[in-house]
């Protein structure tokens, strides 16, 4: 499953997007920005379905339900939260570099 399947008209993705829209405004803002960041960094989990992203939405839903502000949930450094989240993940950059390494070994 690729990001294409994730995004392109697939029911799962549409449901995910609809779910994001039910979050309070401040949560939506943070969610969109961090999704953009994750898409750029490209942890491999993104190509394996909505698990990583819907996990974040769940975290946010519970935070919102308990009346917390979004930054109380993520901490002020949202980038640090994202990086922790994907600390052990391979990213596009890793995949690319591995490909180059294996090529140069031949």
């Amino acid at each position: 499953m690729g990001i294409k399947d994730l995004i392109e008209g697939k029911r799962e993705w549409r449901a995910h997007v609809a779910r994001v829209k039910t979050l309070p405004n401040d949560y939506q803002i943070v969610y969109r920005e961090l999704q953009k960041y994750l898409f750029k960094v490209g942890p491999v989990e993104l190509t394996e379905g909505t698990g990583l992203l819907s996990g974040i939405v769940e975290l946010f839903e519970e935070g919102a339900a308990s009346g917390k502000g979004v930054l109380e949930v993520t901490g002020r450094d949202v980038a640090a939260f994202c990086d922790e989240l994907i600390k052990d993940s391979r990213t596009y950059a890793d995949i690319y570099q591995e490909a180059i390494d294996s090529k140069s070994k031949k």
């Binding site: 294409k4 994730l6 898409f39 750029k40 490209g42 190509t47 596009y92 995949i95």
Partner: peptide, 9 residues
């Protein structure tokens, strides 16, 4: 996968 990710973005 990289291109797929970029296109998704």
């Amino acid at each position: 996968p990289i291109l797929d990710g970029v296109l998704g973005l």
